[in-house]
Design a protein around this nucleic acid. Structure first.
Length: 890
RNA sequence: GGGCAGGUGGCUCAGUUGGUUAGAGCGCCACGUUGACAUCGUGGAGGCCGUAGGUUCGAGUCCUAUCCUGCCCACCA
């Protein structure tokens, strides 16, 4: 039944990136991405943030996939029933915009097609891009359950949206009314406060004089938006402002439109700013709106939907708002009522989706009364039922939630969930029901008109963690997999999405939709710029291009290790290349291991549990096992703490710098002439490497699966193997081998310093003290690694007399002499020893000072103090030997 | 106006309960075709951890102030 993995019989010289896709397909066909439900186990569940169906995946999606797939694969290896739900978002405005742009190329507008035909076009687009996105996701290696793939506008989710809307409506938490909203003239729709991006822009502050009816008195106001003068319905001053006290209650005339407006007193006016008098346009400014409400002023919208001036703008009717501004300023100047123009910079709201300057205006829209939803959402985080990583974002979350304002959810678009409300043309009743109504429940009339507006796309996204599991139906999935575990996404949609999921999740399911929020940063290019499609070298940062070039594993490893939670990262192709090299390094190590095993690989199948170090093993074996066990513990701890980057780096360092650079080199000696312990080495090589593949699998799924398949192993696939066990450490072996490494490094260093040819084997005399037996055991390894001539190597307990004319090294507890007569330059050697003595001097002085400090000795932990004592002893010993040496040289 | 993050070798970044002589990758210098690997190996140069104070036996790590960079929030007319 079990189909074999799609790999060549023999390991090739390098890992072929083209194998990634077949391996992925194999995993999928084998059903490894599907959760193994077990009622006794707690499942691990992630709802994947659904990409918009607007276009191609970018590096932002690559980081999402990398982090989530890493967590998913880790938990799958732990044996948790693991579910990752994929899907896509209809992305209301964004998608409608791209399709409209397509239509523009044909010279058409959506109005030319009409609602129905236009929506057909959008669905076509959606089908194309959803498929493309799915394909791209597969290439990113995501191990999600494709059978559970959802779309925010598919039948089930639409039902969820309808249910959520109706419930909120019935609870009185959704209302309709005319309020000040943000209007995007290009999108021709209302947008929420969050969808407005404020940018500081240079502009002017125009001082304009308003006259009283009799032209006896006047008041000067300062404004950044002269075109809204036409909608003024008051002029306000601070009640405590003596300059204008006598004018309060008077009426002044609005220029160009025949209207007298009152001068009012309001606490909100800052006496220090501008002239201290402010024009009030309640229909076009949030502050003025509030003032208008307080003083019961008239609300006059002076613009049409397309931002041409409306009939209310009198002589300026039909002009674009900014053309009107220019003309109006000119006219004021001519009239002499433009008193002053100052340079002024202020923040201007732009539409998040199209960049157009947003116009605050009064409009009838649908809103969610948000406070009742926000309160429990705040508590959930305050009381720790939801944790946010990194923690600093909890404060950001609190600030926003505490200060939250009602959410405008209606959009004047065609693409989206149409608001399930009908109006009766007979009696005017407003009907909000779960099933499409056929007759008015009030008057029985069948002339019902459905609300034209659709919902904000984030309304459906807010239901994602449970709507994807079948809510509002009480499905098995919902019962078993909900609440989900981790919500992982970019920090820039904390409010848009995460906050709303928490609010809606708690409201509709009485449970927090997830227990952990993990926020990652944005990916930028080498220069720290946001990567956008319009950049000339954008292709260099296209994840698919990077995958073609280097493979998915290196890209993923780079994204995982390149940053810490919540911090942006700069991604350069160089880094991906470096990690590609790491993948190759592992591949080569595996080839070495495999090449040294006997025919029957089954002899080396690793134990089910940990292989612990025992005294009958070679010290090198004990050392690497111990180091590997340390790694298992560390990586597990770090992943559990969501420190994915650090865990990855630890594996990189261990595999490259310990396993490859040292352990593999050490084993070679045993294989050369099949010395004692060669079989032991084979088992240990396999044990550690196979374990590393399991550890590393969440970080480099493809290359590890391939290697694992070649290596002796238990089970059919790495992806569903088990997480390594934390075995025993062997401090003694670690200490001995590290001393040995220090000795080897010292000899190599000396060779290099004295320009000994690489190929040349040299003599050495080593006084090893009680380590002599150990060093004799490792004699062959020492010869190989330090390139020493076995015939000329002497290992003793101690030396009665140090050899003359030899380099002296005091390292790792060894006293080592390299008799390089011909090569030793006496002066150079003297200088070398002197500088080493000096360095030791400094260290000894530092440690002695520390130990002389009573406070240090009494207050610091015992092991820290002891450590310093040992150092003084060790350094002094080394220094004495070097001093002696210096004398013999002179 | 409020808040947050970053400032560590030439570049990009680690360094999470304060404790060896602060690490890595890339780049740089010297040497190297030993049968896992030149997508490599060996050795090396290079940092008073933004600045100034403070707490502590001990600070890259904690506190205060300050400068620079970036970001978020806010009804700045």
């Amino acid at each position: 039944m079990t189909q074999k993995p799609p790999l060549p019989e023999e390991m090739k010289r390098t890992f072929d990136v083209k194998l990634e896709n077949p391996i992925y397909d194999w995993w999928e066909e084998q059903g490894y991405f599907k959760p193994q439900k077990d009622p006794d186990k707690e499942p691990f569940v992630i709802a994947m943030p659904p990409p918009n169906v607007t276009g191609a995946l970018h590096l932002g999606h690559a980081i999402v996939s990398s982090i989530q797939d890493c967590l998913i694969r880790y938990h799958r290896l732990l044996g948790d029933p693991t579910l990752w739900i994929p899907g896509t978002d209809h992305a209301g405005i964004a998608t409608q915009n791209v399709v409209e742009r397509e239509l523009e190329k044909e010279g058409l507008s959506r109005h030319d097609l009409g609602r129905e035909k236009f929506l057909e076009r959008v669905w076509e687009w959606k089908d194309t891009y959803q498929n493309r996105i799915t394909e791209q996701h597969r290439r990113l290696g995501v191990s999600c359950d494709w059978d559970r793939e959802r779309f925010t506008m598919d039948e089930g989710l639409s039902k969820a949206v309808r249910e959520a809307f109706v419930r909120l409506y019935e609870e009185g938490l959704i209302y309709r009314g005319a309020y000040l909203i943000n209007w995007c003239p290009r999108c021709s729709s209302a947008i929420s406060d969050l969808e407005v991006e404020h940018k500081e822009e240079p502009s002017h502050l125009w001082h304009v004089r308003y006259w009283t009816e009799d032209h006896e008195r006047s008041i000067i106001v300062a404004t950044t938006r002269p075109e809204t003068i036409l909608g003024d319905t008051a002029v306000a001053v601070n009640p405590g402002d003596g300059r204008y006290a006598d004018m309060v209650g008077m009426e002044v005339r609005v220029p160009f439109v025949d209207r007298l407006i009152p001068v009012i007193a309001d606490e909100g006016v800052d006496m220090e700013f501008g002239t201290g008098a402010v024009k009030v346009t309640p229909a076009h400014d949030p502050t003025d709106y509030a003032m208008g409400k307080r003083h019961d002023l008239e609300f006059i919208d002076v613009m049409n939907d397309d931002m041409t001036m409306s009939e209310a703008a009198g002589p300026y009717e039909g002009q674009d708002r900014f053309v009107c501004r220019e003309n109006l300023i000119e006219d004021l100047r001519e009239m002499g009522d433009l008193v002053k123009v100052e340079e002024y910079s202020h923040s201007v709201g732009h539409c998040q989706r199209c960049g157009t300057i947003v116009e605050p205006r009064i409009s009838t829209q649908w809103f969610v009364k948000i406070k009742p939803l926000a309160e429990p959402a705040l508590e959930a985080v305050r009381e720790g039922r939801i944790g946010i990583i990194p923690e600093r974002f909890t404060k950001v979350y609190y600030n926003w939630m505490e200060d939250i304002r009602d959410w405008c959810i209606s959009r004047q678009l065609w693409w989206g969930h149409r608001i399930p409300v009908w109006y009766c043309e007979e009696c005017g009743a407003e009907i909000c029901v779960r099933e499409d109504p056929t007759a008015c429940p009030e008057c029985g009339s069948e002339t019902l008109q459905q609300e034209e507006d659709v919902l904000d796309t984030w309304f459906s996204s807010g239901l994602w963690p449970f709507s994807t599991l079948g809510w509002p139906e009480e499905t098995e999935d919902l019962d078993y997999f909900y609440p989900t575990s981790v919500m992982e996404t970019a920090y820039d949609i904390l409010f848009f999405w995460v906050a709303r999921m928490i609010m809606m999740g708690i409201h509709f399911t009485d449970e927090e939709p997830f227990h952990t929020v993990y926020l990652h940063g944005l990916v930028r290019n080498e220069d720290g710029e946001k990567i956008s499609k319009s950049m000339p070298d954008a292709w260099r940062y296209d994840p698919l291009h990077m995958i073609d070039e280097y493979g998915q594993d290196p890209l993923r490893f780079t994204l995982l290790t390149g940053s810490t939670p919540g911090n942006d990262m700069r991604l350069s192709p160089d880094r991906v290349e470096a990690n590609r090299n790491f993948g190759n390094k592992i591949w080569q190590a595996a080839r070495y291991v495999l090449g040294n095993l006997d025919e029957d690989l089954k002899d080396y199948v690793p134990p089910t549990g940990a292989l612990n170090p025992t005294t009958d093993m070679d010290m090198a074996d004990r050392w690497i096992i111990s180091r590997y066990h340390r790694l298992v513990a560390e990586v597990t701890r770090l992943i559990e703490a969501y420190q994915l980057g650090e865990a990855g780096r630890q594996m990189y360092d261990f595999i490259w710098s310990e396993y490859c650079d040292w352990y593999i080199e050490m084993t070679k000696v045993r294989f050369w002439d099949e010395q004692e312990g060669a079989d032991q080495a084979r088992s240990v090589l396999v044990y550690v490497l196979e374990g590393c593949m399991r550890l590393l699998h969440p970080y480099m799924p493809f290359v590890t699966e391939a290697i694992w398949q070649y290596l002796p192993h238990r089970g059919e696939a790495l992806i569903k193997a088990s997480w390594p066990e934390e075995g025993e450490r062997d401090p003694q072996a670690e200490e001995k081998v590290e001393g040995f490494m220090e000795l080897v490094r010292g000899i190599r260093n000396a060779r290099s310093e004295y320009h000994v040819e690489h190929g040349r084997r040299i003599a050495a005399i080593i006084a090893a003290g009680e380590e002599a037996p150990f060093l004799r055991e490792q004699q062959g390894v020492l010869e190989a690694l330090a390139r020493i001539d076995g015939e000329q190597l002497e290992i003793r307990e101690s030396l009665a007399e140090a050899p003359e004319r030899a380099l002296a090294l005091m390292l790792g507890g060894y006293e080592c002499y390299l008799p390089l007569e011909a090569l030793v330059d006496l002066e150079q050697e003297t200088a070398r020893i002197r500088s080493e003595i000096e360095e030791l001097d400094e260290e000894i002085a530092r440690a002695r000072d520390l130990l002389a400090n009573e406070d240090f000795v009494t207050k610091a932990p015992e092991d820290v103090v002891q450590n310093e004592r040992d150092k003084v002893e060790d350094y002094t010993e080394r220094q004495n030997m070097l001093l002696e040496r210096l004398e013999t040289l002179q």
